[in-house]
Design a binder for these strands. Structure first.
Length: 426
RNA sequence: GGCGUGGUGGCCGAGUGGUUUAAGGCAGCGGUCUUGAAAACCGCCAAGGGGGAAACUCCUUCGUGAGUUCGAAUCUCACCCACGCCGCCA
């Protein structure tokens, strides 16, 4: 949630910054907020003046009662003003609710350094690793997965529909090996605290990180209990300290969680969704950091480096993109995407997104800290990065490391976790 | 699912209609004392919001929402959550 006061102080500049996202509806929402805020403040002033009068008169009644003096004529006039206060209060609350609801649908302000424009304006910051060359035509992972006997897409369809892959045998073991490898890297080497959170969360939790109220259609929901399956561990983990006031000394907080993620991904199937490219359920290791506002720029580089380290150790060629204003997610101010090269599909696949949310999520979730003993509480800054998502990483591992005989070499870092250095056709 | 108990500031905890402008304690901050520290003692110390250049001032908040009342932490109703016991269960 953006700060209403910022909108008040600099409506033109804030509006212009938000318009860089290229969404005309945002401008309308901003205008609506400005108008609602103006009306709300006028109403609050009026109501509060009346309340101050009422409270003073109420105190006078109490004084007279104690002194056993008559207060009947005062009580009669109070009855009238009490009704007016009640009416104004109802009006104020309705306006406040509308203002809040509108504000919740306004995205974060893009960082000034993000390129302006749609996804085409994304900027490649750097590339790392060698794109492999093949003496034969490399196969896509859905073919390799089948010949290796580790990926069963058809039976997944039988169980749950398309987009629910089944990993079997060495495939299931590979999933487990990758998860353990990443968790060990982030906990032991990078110093994150491991969290195993709930996979079902409330509306309040999803509102805290920004998925609700605007993106309910992207989520799997359980209407009976009004709970939702998490689309990412970011949601439960960022909300761990919701409605808390943290001591400055505990920051930065660093958490890592391995969870399944559930996304409806409404839209037609096609070549972008084949195999493991876009699925409704997938596993992901996620790193989350909460820090002081003055640390967040450095923390963003750090969390990105932590995600990159996973790909380096897996010996996967990747590149880092800075997302343009129009491609940056609703809650994020600035995002770096990590894209891994996948030789079989011949494309860069997004396998991590490292974002800083400034105080946008902290404001929604009331994540605060006290900068110094006795000082006013401030909002923390939140950040997260996938470290990393499994399916596309598996696709890249299979496709980049395939041999002509259909076998697949595994990177050294994974061998102790997997227990072998090759996957062999069945 | 049934019955019961409870939800109060950063934390603990008192408080059954009007000096509660929420007692007291812990933590924190400042001071006295001390070579320094500790202890002891004294003082300060909730959050959110409106108005104001500022000093300041006003409003709201005791799980959430509605109600009774001139006035609600306190009374009424609904809901949520936690804990305990019973039932069911990996």
């Amino acid at each position: 949630m953006i700060d209403v006061r910022l909108l008040r102080q600099d409506p033109g500049g804030t509006r212009a910054a938000l318009m860089r996202r290229g969404d005309a509806a945002v401008g309308e929402a901003v205008d609506a907020v400005l108008e609602l805020d103006r009306r709300w403040r006028a109403l609050v002033s009026e109501t509060e003046g009346l309340k101050a009068e009422r409270n003073a008169a109420t105190e006078e009644v109490a004084r007279r009662k104690r002194a056993k003096e008559p207060a009947d004529e005062l009580l009669a006039s109070l009855k009238v003003s009490a009704d007016r206060v009640k009416g104004l209060d109802t009006e104020t609350k309705a306006l406040e609710a509308e203002l809040h609801e509108t504000l919740l649908r306004i995205p974060n302000i893009p960082h000034p350094d993000t390129p302006t424009g749609p996804a085409e304006a994304n900027r490649v910051l750097r590339a790392c690793g060698e794109v492999p060359a093949f003496a034969f035509t490399p196969k896509p992972h859905w073919e390799l997965g089948q010949t290796l006997g580790i990926l069963d897409l058809q039976r997944g369809v039988k169980l749950s529909g398309s987009g629910f892959p089944v990993f079997t045998g060495a495939g299931a073991r590979l999933v487990r090996a990758l998860a353990n490898f990443m968790l060990d890297l982030h906990t032991v080497t990078h110093g994150y605290v491991e969290v195993s959170p709930p996979y079902l969360v409330t509306r309040a939790t999803l509102t805290g990180t920004g998925q609700l109220p605007k993106f309910e259609d992207d989520l799997y929901g359980l209407p009976t209990d009004d709970l939702f399956l998490i689309p990412t561990a970011e949601v439960p983990v960022t909300n761990l300290h919701r409605d808390e006031l943290l001591e400055a000394g505990v920051l930065p907080l660093a958490y890592v969680a391995y969870t399944p993620c559930f996304r409806r991904e409404a839209g037609a199937a096609g070549k972008d969704t084949r195999g493991l490219l876009r699925v409704h359920q997938f596993d992901k290791v996620e790193v989350v950091r909460l820090c002081r506002p003055d640390e967040s720029a450095g923390e963003h580089e750090l969390i990105t480096a932590h995600a990159e380290e996973v790909l380096k150790r897996l010996e996967l060629p990747y590149r880092v993109l800075e997302l343009a204003s129009g491609d940056t997610g609703f809650s994020a101010a600035r995002t770096y995407d990590l894209e891994v090269w996948s030789a079989g599909v011949g494309a860069w696949l997004e396998c991590s997104s490292a974002s800083t949310f400034t105080d946008f999520q902290a404001r929604r979730a009331s994540l605060r800290f006290r900068p110094a003993p006795g000082a006013k509480p401030e909002f923390v800054h939140t950040l997260n990065a996938s470290g990393v998502a499994l399916p596309r990483t598996i696709a890249a591992l299979l496709e980049n490391n395939q041999a002509a005989d259909g076998s697949v070499r595994l990177p050294k870092a994974l061998v102790p976790y997997f227990g072998a250095d090759r996957l062999l056709p069945q």
